[in-house]
Nucleic acid binder design. Sequence first.
DNA 1: CACATGCTGCGACTAAAGTCACTGCTCGGG
DNA 2: CCCGAGCAGTGACTTTAGTCGCAGCATGTG
Lengths: 236, 236
Amino acid sequence: MLPMPEPADVVSALGAASLFSNLSLEELRLLAGHAVRKRYAQGELLFSEGDACKGLHIIVTGKLRIFKSSASGREQVLAVEGPGGSVAELPVFDGAPYPASVSAVEDAQILFISRSDFRSFCLAHPEVALKMLAVVGARLRRLVGIIEELSFTTVRQRLASVLVRLAQTEGKHTGQSIEIQLPGTHQELAHQLGTVRELVSRNLMRLQAEGLVQVEARHITVLDLPGLTAILDSSS
Amino acid sequence: MLPMPEPADVVSALGAASLFSNLSLEELRLLAGHAVRKRYAQGELLFSEGDACKGLHIIVTGKLRIFKSSASGREQVLAVEGPGGSVAELPVFDGAPYPASVSAVEDAQILFISRSDFRSFCLAHPEVALKMLAVVGARLRRLVGIIEELSFTTVRQRLASVLVRLAQTEGKHTGQSIEIQLPGTHQELAHQLGTVRELVSRNLMRLQAEGLVQVEARHITVLDLPGLTAILDSSS
DNA sequence: CACATGCTGCGACTAAAGTCACTGCTCGGG
DNA sequence: CCCGAGCAGTGACTTTAGTCGCAGCATGTG
Protein backbone atom coordinates (compact mmCIF):
# COMPACT_ATOMS: atom_id res chain seq x y z
CA MET A 1 0.00 0.00 0.00
CA LEU A 2 1.50 3.28 -1.08
CA PRO A 3 1.79 6.06 1.49
CA MET A 4 0.17 8.48 -0.96
CA PRO A 5 -2.19 6.72 -3.33
CA GLU A 6 -3.86 8.83 -6.01
CA PRO A 7 -6.38 10.98 -4.18
CA ALA A 8 -9.83 11.08 -5.65
CA ASP A 9 -9.56 14.75 -6.52
CA VAL A 10 -6.53 14.16 -8.72
CA VAL A 11 -8.48 11.55 -10.63
CA SER A 12 -11.45 13.82 -11.13
CA ALA A 13 -9.21 16.74 -12.09
CA LEU A 14 -7.60 14.62 -14.78
CA GLY A 15 -10.96 13.47 -16.03
CA ALA A 16 -12.00 17.11 -16.40
CA ALA A 17 -9.10 17.86 -18.70
CA SER A 18 -10.12 17.86 -22.35
CA LEU A 19 -7.19 15.64 -23.18
CA PHE A 20 -8.52 12.78 -21.09
CA SER A 21 -12.24 13.30 -21.33
CA ASN A 22 -12.99 9.85 -22.66
CA LEU A 23 -10.82 7.64 -20.48
CA SER A 24 -12.23 5.09 -18.11
CA LEU A 25 -12.02 5.59 -14.38
CA GLU A 26 -9.45 2.86 -14.16
CA GLU A 27 -7.23 4.50 -16.75
CA LEU A 28 -7.52 7.83 -14.98
CA ARG A 29 -6.41 6.18 -11.73
CA LEU A 30 -3.41 4.73 -13.46
CA LEU A 31 -2.47 8.10 -14.91
CA ALA A 32 -3.11 9.88 -11.62
CA GLY A 33 -0.47 7.68 -10.05
CA HIS A 34 2.11 9.49 -12.17
CA ALA A 35 0.77 12.98 -11.69
CA VAL A 36 2.48 15.46 -9.41
CA ARG A 37 0.67 18.44 -7.92
CA LYS A 38 2.26 21.80 -8.38
CA ARG A 39 1.24 25.32 -7.44
CA TYR A 40 2.27 28.56 -9.04
CA ALA A 41 1.64 32.09 -7.82
CA GLN A 42 0.34 34.83 -10.07
CA GLY A 43 3.06 35.95 -12.45
CA GLU A 44 5.29 32.99 -11.73
CA LEU A 45 7.10 31.39 -14.64
CA LEU A 46 6.56 27.66 -15.25
CA PHE A 47 9.34 27.49 -17.81
CA SER A 48 11.04 29.58 -20.45
CA GLU A 49 11.34 29.29 -24.17
CA GLY A 50 14.32 27.13 -24.98
CA ASP A 51 14.24 25.13 -21.76
CA ALA A 52 14.46 21.38 -22.14
CA CYS A 53 11.04 19.75 -22.02
CA LYS A 54 10.32 18.04 -18.74
CA GLY A 55 6.75 16.96 -19.20
CA LEU A 56 3.11 17.78 -19.63
CA HIS A 57 1.21 20.34 -17.51
CA ILE A 58 -2.53 20.05 -16.95
CA ILE A 59 -4.42 22.98 -15.48
CA VAL A 60 -6.68 22.22 -12.54
CA THR A 61 -7.42 25.80 -11.48
CA GLY A 62 -6.15 29.18 -12.59
CA LYS A 63 -4.94 30.43 -15.93
CA LEU A 64 -1.69 30.12 -17.82
CA ARG A 65 -0.41 32.23 -20.66
CA ILE A 66 1.86 30.93 -23.38
CA PHE A 67 4.01 33.68 -24.84
CA LYS A 68 7.09 34.64 -26.79
CA SER A 69 9.30 37.46 -25.63
CA SER A 70 11.75 39.46 -27.66
CA ALA A 71 15.19 40.77 -26.87
CA SER A 72 13.84 44.31 -26.59
CA GLY A 73 11.32 43.39 -23.92
CA ARG A 74 8.25 43.06 -26.11
CA GLU A 75 5.92 40.11 -25.62
CA GLN A 76 3.43 38.29 -27.79
CA VAL A 77 0.85 36.08 -26.16
CA LEU A 78 0.15 32.90 -28.12
CA ALA A 79 -2.60 31.46 -25.98
CA VAL A 80 -4.25 31.68 -22.58
CA GLU A 81 -5.35 28.35 -21.16
CA GLY A 82 -7.80 27.83 -18.32
CA PRO A 83 -8.91 24.89 -16.19
CA GLY A 84 -9.07 21.65 -18.16
CA GLY A 85 -6.50 22.91 -20.61
CA SER A 86 -2.98 21.68 -21.00
CA VAL A 87 0.32 23.24 -21.83
CA ALA A 88 3.47 21.91 -23.46
CA GLU A 89 1.85 18.89 -25.05
CA LEU A 90 4.05 18.96 -28.05
CA PRO A 91 7.62 18.86 -26.91
CA VAL A 92 6.64 15.74 -25.01
CA PHE A 93 6.67 14.01 -28.35
CA ASP A 94 9.41 15.50 -30.41
CA GLY A 95 11.72 15.97 -27.45
CA ALA A 96 12.75 19.40 -28.67
CA PRO A 97 12.95 22.37 -26.30
CA TYR A 98 9.88 24.46 -25.52
CA PRO A 99 9.15 26.92 -28.34
CA ALA A 100 7.66 29.49 -25.96
CA SER A 101 7.46 30.48 -22.31
CA VAL A 102 4.57 29.91 -19.94
CA SER A 103 3.60 31.90 -16.87
CA ALA A 104 0.63 31.99 -14.52
CA VAL A 105 -1.91 34.77 -15.11
CA GLU A 106 -3.57 33.96 -11.81
CA ASP A 107 -2.61 31.59 -9.01
CA ALA A 108 -2.72 28.16 -10.56
CA GLN A 109 -2.88 24.56 -9.51
CA ILE A 110 -1.25 22.19 -11.96
CA LEU A 111 -0.89 18.48 -12.46
CA PHE A 112 2.44 17.57 -13.91
CA ILE A 113 3.19 14.32 -15.71
CA SER A 114 6.73 13.59 -16.76
CA ARG A 115 7.63 13.16 -20.36
CA SER A 116 8.51 9.49 -20.13
CA ASP A 117 5.49 8.55 -18.02
CA PHE A 118 3.17 10.27 -20.43
CA ARG A 119 4.80 8.77 -23.47
CA SER A 120 4.40 5.26 -22.22
CA PHE A 121 0.83 5.97 -21.21
CA CYS A 122 0.11 7.20 -24.73
CA LEU A 123 1.56 4.11 -26.30
CA ALA A 124 -0.66 1.96 -24.11
CA HIS A 125 -3.72 4.12 -24.82
CA PRO A 126 -3.72 5.12 -28.48
CA GLU A 127 -6.98 7.05 -28.17
CA VAL A 128 -5.10 9.61 -26.10
CA ALA A 129 -2.83 10.24 -29.05
CA LEU A 130 -5.87 11.00 -31.16
CA LYS A 131 -7.13 13.40 -28.52
CA MET A 132 -3.74 15.05 -28.58
CA LEU A 133 -4.12 15.57 -32.30
CA ALA A 134 -7.42 17.31 -31.71
CA VAL A 135 -5.98 19.54 -28.98
CA VAL A 136 -2.89 20.37 -30.98
CA GLY A 137 -5.04 20.95 -34.03
CA ALA A 138 -7.11 23.51 -32.18
CA ARG A 139 -3.97 25.28 -31.06
CA LEU A 140 -2.63 25.28 -34.59
CA ARG A 141 -5.78 26.93 -35.84
CA ARG A 142 -5.50 29.63 -33.24
CA LEU A 143 -1.91 30.30 -34.23
CA VAL A 144 -2.95 30.63 -37.85
CA GLY A 145 -5.56 33.11 -36.67
CA ILE A 146 -2.89 35.15 -34.87
CA ILE A 147 -0.72 35.20 -37.96
CA GLU A 148 -3.65 36.36 -40.03
CA GLU A 149 -4.38 39.17 -37.60
CA LEU A 150 -0.76 40.25 -37.34
CA SER A 151 -0.18 40.46 -41.03
CA PHE A 152 -3.53 41.72 -42.25
CA THR A 153 -5.02 43.91 -39.57
CA THR A 154 -4.21 47.06 -37.64
CA VAL A 155 -3.96 47.40 -33.88
CA ARG A 156 -7.27 49.25 -33.98
CA GLN A 157 -8.98 46.31 -35.66
CA ARG A 158 -7.48 43.77 -33.32
CA LEU A 159 -8.58 45.81 -30.34
CA ALA A 160 -12.10 46.15 -31.71
CA SER A 161 -12.11 42.43 -32.31
CA VAL A 162 -11.29 41.69 -28.68
CA LEU A 163 -13.97 44.09 -27.47
CA VAL A 164 -16.58 42.51 -29.72
CA ARG A 165 -15.61 39.05 -28.52
CA LEU A 166 -15.82 40.11 -24.89
CA ALA A 167 -19.16 41.80 -25.47
CA GLN A 168 -20.56 38.67 -27.08
CA THR A 169 -19.30 36.21 -24.53
CA GLU A 170 -19.32 37.89 -21.14
CA GLY A 171 -21.00 41.23 -21.74
CA LYS A 172 -23.80 42.36 -19.47
CA HIS A 173 -26.60 43.95 -21.46
CA THR A 174 -27.91 47.08 -19.80
CA GLY A 175 -30.53 48.65 -22.03
CA GLN A 176 -28.99 49.56 -25.36
CA SER A 177 -25.43 49.14 -24.22
CA ILE A 178 -23.22 46.25 -23.16
CA GLU A 179 -20.86 46.40 -20.20
CA ILE A 180 -17.59 44.53 -20.27
CA GLN A 181 -14.50 44.32 -18.15
CA LEU A 182 -11.00 44.09 -19.58
CA PRO A 183 -9.40 40.86 -18.41
CA GLY A 184 -6.10 42.48 -17.47
CA THR A 185 -4.05 45.66 -17.63
CA HIS A 186 -3.57 47.61 -20.84
CA GLN A 187 -0.06 46.25 -20.84
CA GLU A 188 -1.28 42.67 -20.82
CA LEU A 189 -3.84 43.38 -23.51
CA ALA A 190 -1.09 44.95 -25.59
CA HIS A 191 0.92 41.74 -25.30
CA GLN A 192 -2.02 39.79 -26.60
CA LEU A 193 -2.51 42.16 -29.52
CA GLY A 194 1.20 42.14 -30.31
CA THR A 195 1.71 45.82 -29.65
CA VAL A 196 2.56 48.26 -26.85
CA ARG A 197 0.60 49.74 -23.98
CA GLU A 198 0.33 53.24 -25.41
CA LEU A 199 -1.42 52.07 -28.55
CA VAL A 200 -4.04 50.20 -26.54
CA SER A 201 -4.73 53.28 -24.47
CA ARG A 202 -4.82 55.59 -27.47
CA ASN A 203 -7.03 53.36 -29.57
CA LEU A 204 -9.47 52.91 -26.71
CA MET A 205 -9.68 56.68 -26.36
CA ARG A 206 -10.19 57.00 -30.09
CA LEU A 207 -13.06 54.52 -30.04
CA GLN A 208 -14.55 56.56 -27.23
CA ALA A 209 -14.14 59.80 -29.15
CA GLU A 210 -16.02 58.17 -32.00
CA GLY A 211 -18.87 57.35 -29.68
CA LEU A 212 -18.50 53.60 -30.05
CA VAL A 213 -17.55 52.87 -26.45
CA GLN A 214 -17.37 54.50 -23.05
CA VAL A 215 -14.09 53.94 -21.26
CA GLU A 216 -13.70 54.03 -17.48
CA ALA A 217 -10.29 52.51 -16.89
CA ARG A 218 -10.77 48.77 -17.16
CA HIS A 219 -14.52 48.97 -17.26
CA ILE A 220 -15.89 49.52 -20.76
CA THR A 221 -19.38 50.18 -22.01
CA VAL A 222 -20.01 49.24 -25.61
CA LEU A 223 -22.44 51.81 -26.97
CA ASP A 224 -22.49 50.81 -30.63
CA LEU A 225 -21.74 47.13 -31.20
CA PRO A 226 -22.59 47.22 -34.92
CA GLY A 227 -20.27 50.17 -35.35
CA LEU A 228 -17.54 48.34 -33.51
CA THR A 229 -18.06 45.23 -35.60
CA ALA A 230 -17.89 47.30 -38.77
CA ILE A 231 -14.28 48.19 -37.94
CA LEU A 232 -13.28 44.55 -38.29
CA ASP A 233 -13.78 44.44 -42.03
CA SER A 234 -12.86 47.91 -43.16
CA SER A 235 -10.50 47.41 -46.08
CA SER A 236 -8.10 50.21 -45.16
CA MET B 1 -8.18 -8.90 -59.29
CA LEU B 2 -8.59 -5.14 -59.43
CA PRO B 3 -8.19 -3.48 -62.81
CA MET B 4 -5.75 -0.99 -61.25
CA PRO B 5 -3.85 -2.50 -58.33
CA GLU B 6 -1.51 -0.25 -56.42
CA PRO B 7 1.44 0.35 -58.75
CA ALA B 8 4.87 -0.04 -57.25
CA ASP B 9 5.67 3.64 -57.64
CA VAL B 10 2.71 4.66 -55.52
CA VAL B 11 3.96 2.39 -52.77
CA SER B 12 7.46 3.80 -52.92
CA ALA B 13 6.15 7.35 -53.08
CA LEU B 14 4.17 6.77 -49.93
CA GLY B 15 7.16 5.22 -48.21
CA ALA B 16 9.17 8.34 -49.04
CA ALA B 17 6.69 10.58 -47.25
CA SER B 18 7.85 11.49 -43.79
CA LEU B 19 4.46 10.58 -42.38
CA PHE B 20 4.84 6.95 -43.34
CA SER B 21 8.57 6.45 -43.14
CA ASN B 22 8.40 3.56 -40.68
CA LEU B 23 5.59 1.49 -42.09
CA SER B 24 6.11 -2.00 -43.41
CA LEU B 25 5.88 -2.70 -47.11
CA GLU B 26 2.65 -4.53 -46.52
CA GLU B 27 1.09 -1.59 -44.74
CA LEU B 28 2.21 0.74 -47.48
CA ARG B 29 0.53 -1.50 -50.05
CA LEU B 30 -2.67 -1.40 -48.09
CA LEU B 31 -2.58 2.37 -47.88
CA ALA B 32 -1.63 2.71 -51.54
CA GLY B 33 -4.84 0.94 -52.42
CA HIS B 34 -6.71 4.00 -51.15
CA ALA B 35 -4.48 6.61 -52.71
CA VAL B 36 -5.55 8.57 -55.76
CA ARG B 37 -3.04 10.25 -58.04
CA LYS B 38 -3.62 13.87 -58.82
CA ARG B 39 -1.73 16.45 -60.82
CA TYR B 40 -1.73 20.18 -60.44
CA ALA B 41 -0.21 22.78 -62.73
CA GLN B 42 1.91 25.64 -61.48
CA GLY B 43 -0.26 28.19 -59.73
CA GLU B 44 -3.26 25.92 -59.53
CA LEU B 45 -5.31 25.93 -56.35
CA LEU B 46 -5.79 22.63 -54.51
CA PHE B 47 -8.35 24.09 -52.17
CA SER B 48 -9.28 27.32 -50.47
CA GLU B 49 -9.47 28.37 -46.88
CA GLY B 50 -12.89 27.51 -45.53
CA ASP B 51 -13.52 24.62 -47.90
CA ALA B 52 -14.75 21.43 -46.32
CA CYS B 53 -11.93 18.98 -45.71
CA LYS B 54 -11.88 16.14 -48.23
CA GLY B 55 -8.74 14.32 -47.25
CA LEU B 56 -5.00 14.20 -46.95
CA HIS B 57 -2.57 15.29 -49.68
CA ILE B 58 0.91 13.81 -49.94
CA ILE B 59 3.46 15.44 -52.21
CA VAL B 60 5.30 13.14 -54.62
CA THR B 61 6.94 15.80 -56.77
CA GLY B 62 6.72 19.58 -56.92
CA LYS B 63 6.08 22.15 -54.25
CA LEU B 64 2.96 23.39 -52.53
CA ARG B 65 2.46 26.59 -50.61
CA ILE B 66 0.06 26.97 -47.73
CA PHE B 67 -1.17 30.51 -47.36
CA LYS B 68 -3.75 32.87 -45.99
CA SER B 69 -5.16 35.64 -48.13
CA SER B 70 -6.88 38.79 -47.00
CA ALA B 71 -9.87 40.63 -48.35
CA SER B 72 -7.61 43.37 -49.73
CA GLY B 73 -5.56 40.94 -51.81
CA ARG B 74 -2.61 40.54 -49.48
CA GLU B 75 -1.18 37.08 -48.87
CA GLN B 76 0.80 35.48 -46.08
CA VAL B 77 2.61 32.23 -46.77
CA LEU B 78 2.49 29.83 -43.82
CA ALA B 79 4.62 27.05 -45.24
CA VAL B 80 6.10 25.67 -48.43
CA GLU B 81 6.15 21.89 -48.60
CA GLY B 82 8.22 19.79 -50.99
CA PRO B 83 8.35 16.11 -51.98
CA GLY B 84 7.69 13.81 -49.03
CA GLY B 85 5.69 16.49 -47.26
CA SER B 86 2.02 16.50 -46.66
CA VAL B 87 -0.70 19.08 -46.53
CA ALA B 88 -4.02 19.30 -44.71
CA GLU B 89 -3.21 16.64 -42.13
CA LEU B 90 -5.14 18.33 -39.41
CA PRO B 91 -8.67 18.84 -40.63
CA VAL B 92 -8.70 15.14 -41.35
CA PHE B 93 -9.05 14.68 -37.62
CA ASP B 94 -11.17 17.46 -36.32
CA GLY B 95 -13.39 17.55 -39.39
CA ALA B 96 -13.35 21.34 -39.41
CA PRO B 97 -12.82 23.27 -42.65
CA TYR B 98 -9.34 24.05 -43.94
CA PRO B 99 -7.82 26.99 -42.08
CA ALA B 100 -5.77 28.11 -45.09
CA SER B 101 -5.50 27.75 -48.84
CA VAL B 102 -3.00 25.64 -50.75
CA SER B 103 -1.67 26.15 -54.26
CA ALA B 104 1.09 24.63 -56.36
CA VAL B 105 4.31 26.64 -56.60
CA GLU B 106 5.53 24.33 -59.34
CA ASP B 107 3.80 21.55 -61.26
CA ALA B 108 3.04 18.93 -58.66
CA GLN B 109 2.14 15.29 -58.44
CA ILE B 110 0.03 14.43 -55.42
CA LEU B 111 -1.31 11.34 -53.72
CA PHE B 112 -4.69 11.93 -52.23
CA ILE B 113 -6.24 9.81 -49.47
CA SER B 114 -9.78 10.48 -48.44
CA ARG B 115 -10.59 11.54 -44.93
CA SER B 116 -12.48 8.40 -43.97
CA ASP B 117 -9.92 6.02 -45.50
CA PHE B 118 -7.11 7.73 -43.68
CA ARG B 119 -8.97 7.84 -40.40
CA SER B 120 -9.60 4.15 -40.40
CA PHE B 121 -6.02 3.48 -41.41
CA CYS B 122 -4.83 5.55 -38.46
CA LEU B 123 -7.01 3.68 -36.04
CA ALA B 124 -5.57 0.40 -37.27
CA HIS B 125 -2.02 1.74 -37.17
CA PRO B 126 -1.52 3.86 -34.07
CA GLU B 127 2.11 4.57 -34.84
CA VAL B 128 0.92 6.71 -37.73
CA ALA B 129 -0.92 8.90 -35.26
CA LEU B 130 2.32 9.43 -33.38
CA LYS B 131 4.07 10.37 -36.61
CA MET B 132 1.27 12.81 -37.27
CA LEU B 133 1.96 14.41 -33.92
CA ALA B 134 5.58 14.87 -34.90
CA VAL B 135 4.68 16.37 -38.29
CA VAL B 136 2.04 18.65 -36.83
CA GLY B 137 4.41 19.60 -34.04
CA ALA B 138 7.02 20.70 -36.53
CA ARG B 139 4.45 22.80 -38.33
CA LEU B 140 3.34 24.34 -35.07
CA ARG B 141 6.89 25.35 -34.29
CA ARG B 142 7.23 27.01 -37.65
CA LEU B 143 4.02 28.94 -37.10
CA VAL B 144 5.29 30.16 -33.76
CA GLY B 145 8.42 31.28 -35.57
CA ILE B 146 6.34 33.25 -38.07
CA ILE B 147 4.42 34.93 -35.27
CA GLU B 148 7.66 35.85 -33.58
CA GLU B 149 9.01 37.38 -36.77
CA LEU B 150 5.81 39.26 -37.54
CA SER B 151 5.50 40.84 -34.16
CA PHE B 152 9.12 41.46 -33.26
CA THR B 153 11.02 42.14 -36.46
CA THR B 154 10.99 44.58 -39.36
CA VAL B 155 10.67 43.72 -43.03
CA ARG B 156 14.35 44.52 -43.38
CA GLN B 157 15.29 41.96 -40.76
CA ARG B 158 13.05 39.29 -42.20
CA LEU B 159 14.51 39.87 -45.64
CA ALA B 160 18.05 39.69 -44.31
CA SER B 161 17.10 36.51 -42.51
CA VAL B 162 15.93 34.88 -45.73
CA LEU B 163 19.09 35.94 -47.55
CA VAL B 164 21.29 34.55 -44.80
CA ARG B 165 19.39 31.27 -44.83
CA LEU B 166 19.69 30.99 -48.61
CA ALA B 167 23.37 31.82 -48.46
CA GLN B 168 23.98 29.14 -45.87
CA THR B 169 21.97 26.40 -47.52
CA GLU B 170 22.27 26.83 -51.26
CA GLY B 171 24.81 29.58 -51.74
CA LYS B 172 27.71 29.14 -54.18
CA HIS B 173 30.91 30.46 -52.69
CA THR B 174 32.93 32.44 -55.25
CA GLY B 175 35.96 33.89 -53.53
CA GLN B 176 34.91 36.22 -50.74
CA SER B 177 31.29 36.39 -51.84
CA ILE B 178 28.35 34.01 -51.97
CA GLU B 179 25.97 33.82 -54.91
CA ILE B 180 22.33 33.02 -54.35
CA GLN B 181 19.18 32.97 -56.40
CA LEU B 182 15.82 34.16 -55.12
CA PRO B 183 13.36 31.26 -55.25
CA GLY B 184 10.56 33.33 -56.80
CA THR B 185 9.48 36.80 -57.77
CA HIS B 186 9.69 39.73 -55.38
CA GLN B 187 5.95 39.46 -55.09
CA GLU B 188 6.16 35.88 -53.89
CA LEU B 189 8.96 36.71 -51.48
CA ALA B 190 6.83 39.56 -50.14
CA HIS B 191 4.03 37.09 -49.46
CA GLN B 192 6.40 34.96 -47.45
CA LEU B 193 7.64 37.93 -45.45
CA GLY B 194 4.12 39.17 -44.86
CA THR B 195 4.57 42.43 -46.72
CA VAL B 196 4.27 43.95 -50.20
CA ARG B 197 6.42 43.81 -53.29
CA GLU B 198 7.71 47.37 -53.10
CA LEU B 199 9.22 46.86 -49.69
CA VAL B 200 11.13 43.82 -50.86
CA SER B 201 12.51 45.73 -53.79
CA ARG B 202 13.36 48.77 -51.72
CA ASN B 203 15.00 46.86 -48.91
CA LEU B 204 17.08 44.87 -51.37
CA MET B 205 18.26 48.12 -52.92
CA ARG B 206 19.01 49.50 -49.50
CA LEU B 207 21.12 46.47 -48.60
CA GLN B 208 22.95 47.01 -51.88
CA ALA B 209 23.51 50.69 -51.13
CA GLU B 210 25.03 49.64 -47.83
CA GLY B 211 27.45 47.36 -49.64
CA LEU B 212 26.11 44.19 -48.07
CA VAL B 213 24.83 42.60 -51.26
CA GLN B 214 24.92 43.02 -55.01
CA VAL B 215 21.51 42.80 -56.66
CA GLU B 216 20.95 41.77 -60.26
CA ALA B 217 17.21 41.14 -60.43
CA ARG B 218 16.72 37.72 -58.93
CA HIS B 219 20.40 36.89 -58.77
CA ILE B 220 22.04 38.15 -55.60
CA THR B 221 25.66 38.24 -54.50
CA VAL B 222 26.19 38.38 -50.78
CA LEU B 223 29.28 40.52 -50.23
CA ASP B 224 29.24 40.78 -46.44
CA LEU B 225 27.57 37.86 -44.73
CA PRO B 226 28.60 38.92 -41.20
CA GLY B 227 27.18 42.37 -41.87
CA LEU B 228 23.96 40.82 -43.11
CA THR B 229 23.75 38.55 -40.10
CA ALA B 230 24.29 41.52 -37.79
CA ILE B 231 21.01 43.00 -39.03
CA LEU B 232 19.10 40.10 -37.54
CA ASP B 233 19.73 41.11 -33.95
CA SER B 234 19.82 44.87 -34.06
CA SER B 235 17.59 46.02 -31.24
CA SER B 236 15.93 48.86 -33.14
C1' DC C 1 8.15 44.43 -85.96
C1' DA C 2 4.50 46.03 -82.87
C1' DC C 3 2.40 45.03 -78.92
C1' DA C 4 0.86 43.04 -74.65
C1' DT C 5 2.30 41.06 -70.34
C1' DG C 6 4.79 40.41 -66.25
C1' DC C 7 8.52 41.80 -63.29
C1' DT C 8 11.22 45.36 -61.34
C1' DG C 9 12.79 50.15 -59.76
C1' DC C 10 11.54 54.46 -57.88
C1' DG C 11 9.61 58.82 -56.13
C1' DA C 12 6.19 61.01 -53.41
C1' DC C 13 3.00 60.46 -50.30
C1' DT C 14 -0.16 58.78 -46.21
C1' DA C 15 -0.90 56.24 -42.44
C1' DA C 16 0.19 53.29 -38.88
C1' DA C 17 3.27 51.81 -35.37
C1' DG C 18 6.35 52.58 -31.96
C1' DT C 19 9.38 55.61 -28.67
C1' DC C 20 10.17 58.93 -25.06
C1' DA C 21 9.10 61.69 -21.45
C1' DC C 22 5.99 63.22 -18.43
C1' DT C 23 1.52 63.77 -15.59
C1' DG C 24 -1.94 62.29 -12.63
C1' DC C 25 -4.50 58.75 -10.26
C1' DT C 26 -5.37 55.10 -6.99
C1' DC C 27 -4.49 51.93 -3.67
C1' DG C 28 -2.09 49.80 0.09
C1' DG C 29 1.56 49.66 3.58
C1' DG C 30 4.41 51.73 6.90
C1' DC D 1 -1.21 60.51 6.73
C1' DC D 2 2.41 60.25 3.58
C1' DC D 3 4.89 57.71 0.36
C1' DG D 4 5.86 54.60 -3.29
C1' DA D 5 4.48 51.48 -6.82
C1' DG D 6 1.92 50.40 -10.54
C1' DC D 7 -1.43 51.73 -13.96
C1' DA D 8 -3.49 54.85 -17.25
C1' DG D 9 -3.66 59.07 -20.33
C1' DT D 10 -1.21 62.18 -23.49
C1' DG D 11 1.69 65.13 -26.43
C1' DA D 12 5.50 65.33 -29.59
C1' DC D 13 8.27 62.91 -32.30
C1' DT D 14 10.74 59.14 -35.35
C1' DT D 15 10.56 55.21 -37.89
C1' DT D 16 8.48 51.72 -40.56
C1' DA D 17 4.93 50.10 -43.44
C1' DG D 18 2.03 50.53 -47.03
C1' DT D 19 -0.17 52.99 -51.29
C1' DC D 20 -0.28 55.07 -55.84
C1' DG D 21 1.31 55.98 -60.08
C1' DC D 22 4.45 55.45 -63.43
C1' DA D 23 8.59 54.20 -66.18
C1' DG D 24 11.96 50.82 -67.90
C1' DC D 25 12.91 46.31 -69.55
C1' DA D 26 12.72 41.72 -70.81
C1' DT D 27 10.06 38.08 -73.07
C1' DG D 28 7.12 36.08 -76.10
C1' DT D 29 3.37 36.15 -79.51
C1' DG D 30 0.61 37.36 -83.46
